[in-house]
Simulated scan of single mutants.
Amino acid sequence: MSDVLDTIALCWRLERRDGIAIGLTSHDRDLTIDGLLYRAAPGMTPSAVKRSDGLDADTMDVAGALTGAAIGEADLLAGRWDGARVVLFAADWTSETPPVPLGAGTIGSVETKDDGFTAELQGIAAALAQPVVEETSAECRAELGDARCRVAMAGRRRFARVISVEGAAVTLDAGEPGANAWGWGLLRWLGGGNSGLESAVAASDGATVTLRRPPVYAPDAGALVEIVEGCDKSFATCRDRFANAANFRGEPFLPGIDLLTRYPGA
């Protein structure tokens, strides 16, 4: 039995939301499995895998060393690995035996310390912990352009080039279609060091957009971005700007909890 265990290597397949996939293995040399190269990462170690046949969420922690070639601290903090899909399996590197799956899910909370990190792997059962019924709100709970909002996004997104960056203010070579049209919107980086990342837009004025936080990496002039219009989720904006009051997903006229604190004559 010990000889068999000596030939078993743990492997991780990580697929980021931007389509990039990498492979890591605890073996002392690289392995190629199903056409993907799994880089040797002896520092990668999983905790005990919790699996059950009930409705409790399956969870697992993966600890590893931060390496610039695989998973760097800057990329973790930038959010490149948020929500990435992870598949963990055991493979016998001395034979063609099919790998044995051990767990799969998405990366949850990530904690960095010293020269390493710990990532929580959330199994598919974790979705059962999500609320079944939405809470009421004065603001719209839909996202602009999604299946519930139904606003056509054709013409409400465009590609542009970065002219200059000063802190969180980014000047583009394209003007906005209306006053603060990009406010509450999204800026997707398609080139440069921030490629694959998204930045939330706080406000816009002409060709200048103010991000909610400065870019993670210093953008190069001429970097390609995609800018998408936003919505402040208020009923007035939905009605007046988008003519979409029929699809407003909120309760703007529902009395709030402050109704309980009112008194006659207030």
Results as ranks from 00 to 15, higher is better:
A119P: 08
L31Y: 00
G206L: 07
D61S: 14
D58I: 06
A246W: 01
P214E: 04
D173F: 02
A119I: 10
A119Q: 05
E226Q: 15
E73H: 12
Q122G: 05
A179V: 13
P219E: 00
R141Y: 01
G145W: 01
A126T: 15
V201Y: 03
A266E: 14
N244Q: 02
T171C: 14
A41E: 09
F242A: 05
D82A: 12
I22W: 02
G191M: 08
L5P: 05
V151E: 00
L197N: 04
A147R: 11
S234E: 00
G54I: 05
E15S: 10
R141F: 03
R188K: 15
W81C: 03
R212C: 15
Y217S: 15
Y217L: 10
L14Q: 02
G108K: 05
F117A: 08
R13G: 02
A152K: 07
L190H: 08
T112Y: 04
K233S: 01
A21H: 06
T25Y: 03
G35C: 02
A142P: 06
S234F: 00
A91W: 07
V86A: 13
D58V: 06
A78M: 04
A125Q: 10
L197V: 10
G35Q: 01
A223Y: 06
L121D: 02
D82W: 08
N244S: 02
L55Y: 11
L224F: 13
E143P: 01
L36W: 05
V49E: 07
N247Y: 02
M153K: 03
R239G: 03
Y38W: 06
S137D: 14
R80Y: 11
V133I: 14
A266L: 14
P101G: 04
D3Q: 12
A70Q: 12
F159P: 05
A168G: 10
G191P: 05
S109W: 12
A57R: 01
A40W: 07
S26Q: 11
D58L: 05
P42I: 03
D75M: 09
L10F: 07
A203K: 01
W189F: 09
L121N: 02
L14T: 04
T32N: 08
P46M: 13
D18K: 05
G175Q: 09
T45L: 13
M1D: 11
F89T: 08
V225I: 01
V162I: 12
L224G: 06
M60F: 07
A125T: 10
T94V: 13
D18F: 01
R16Q: 03
L66P: 03
M60C: 13
T32M: 15
